[in-house]
Design a protein around this nucleic acid. Structure first.
Lengths: 244, 244
DNA sequence: AAGTGGTCTAGACCACAGC
DNA sequence: CTGTGGTCTAGACCACTTC
């Protein structure tokens, strides 16, 4: 077996055995090289695999640390998006913050573009304009989610939906006030590795991400498509559905 | 910016521009090193990031190839797990194969163990035995999903559920015949990097995976917990739920 | 300034694929 | 056998954190 795998396996065992507890700093790369009788390059390759698996967190200039157990954000979309929540004046992200006890904040960038590929899912012409709401959502100041909403401009034109702040109950409450009564949501869940751009926003240590596309419907009409990206190790999505 | 990032960005651009089309082979590592004026190590680092992002597939001894667009398996759990499907004598994986047009196969390993941590979710004592059905599911011979089901042995004892083949309609059909009428499912979706063991089973090129835990309920009673692992780039999970 | 991880080199040998 | 990627080395210098 390759040396770097042997080193990785030994380090994993040491972490599992508690020799390096949560948050503990591992020996430096040169120290590990000497201990295992391998070059620093090989040690780095071993540490890289541990980092990929999320076992350790590498901090430039500081050291390598055993990743403490994550506080997982559990999202039950159906509850979180319920009309009841909106009537409590809570948007989806605020409802989540409320339940999990973190301080939410977000920055929003608004733009208007041709719908292009999104025309198909929204049921509009590719050249019709959409309102793009590009958000970075933070928990206690740390970015935890990227979300890009697109809404047909025929719905948003001249409304607060084209402003940074959408007001109590969030965007969905405003959409319903426009006369589009939301009937159901569809969520399409995928995953993958974070791109360099996503890591720049969510944190360089982020590896795997969950990608969720939520489509909000008013009857047969799709009124919003929201593409979200979140670090996989920080989220759990929960869905319930009947057996028949 | 680091050289390996520059190289990676240039290769990405070349792929996006179509200079290297889907399935095309990239120049060899020494060739790229010469072209960009960097060492082979640096080229490998660049290619590694492309591989992580799923843009290219590395084949030992053959070369580096632009990953062709994936045939994504779209799973609509609610439909796939419907009673109607079971009454068509199709288990979940068979129903999926039917819909997407691949030839399914699977190998099953049966074991009996104390429930331990799974006792909590199944509502039984941690020392009560569960029947463990450990499966590798293949599409056209290629492993595409790992699934480990655990069922309380009080349900499975002496039934075909403790055999390799569960018969028409799959395990859920047998559970209902035991008198446990399924009422609803819960699915908890997470993600992460594949472990070395998972890569050994699903393919060494697999990076990000989706992890789905499905819990089947008969009323308030959980009758099965099924932990599934699937390559993230091959799956899309679809859920619908009402807005109220 | 000292200590940590990040990048890079030139070269060697190994393992796998394909003729 | 040849060509490809996989592993490994010893050493150098850079960038970030901390004192």
């Amino acid at each position: 077996m390759a040396k770097y795998r042997q080193v990785a396996d030994q380090l994993k065992a040491d972490i599992a055995s508690g020799e390096y507890g949560p948050g503990a700093q591992l020996p430096t790369e040169p120290e590990l090289g000497e201990r295992f009788g391998v070059s620093r390059t090989t040690v780095r390759e071993a540490i890289g695999t541990l980092s990929d698996e999320g076992l350790v967190t590498i901090e430039h200039g500081r050291g390598v640390f055993v990743t403490p157990p994550k506080v997982v954000k559990r999202l039950d979309s159906r509850d979180r998006l319920s009309r009841a929540r909106r009537q409590e004046n809570k948007g989806a992200f605020l409802a989540e913050a409320d339940k999990q006890g973190f301080t939410p904040s977000s920055s929003v960038r608004i733009a208007f573009e041709p719908a292009q590929d999104f025309g198909e899912v929204l049921g509009i012409d590719p050249e019709d304009e959409v309102c793009v709401r590009d958000r970075v959502q933070r928990a206690d100041g740390k970015p935890v989610q990227l979300a890009v909403s697109r809404l047909p401009r025929e719905i948003t034109r001249g409304t607060v939906l084209e402003e940074v702040t959408t007001g109590p109950g969030g965007a969905y409450a405003r959409i319903e006030e426009m006369g589009y009564e939301l009937t159901h949501f569809e969520e399409i869940v995928g995953g993958g590795m974070a791109t360099a751009a996503e890591r720049a926003m969510l944190g360089e240590q982020v590896r795997a991400v969950l990608r969720v596309r939520r489509i909000a419907y008013a009857g047969e009409k799709a009124v919003e498509v929201n593409d979200m990206v979140m670090p996989a190790d920080q989220y759990e999505l929960r869905y319930s559905f009947p057996a028949d």
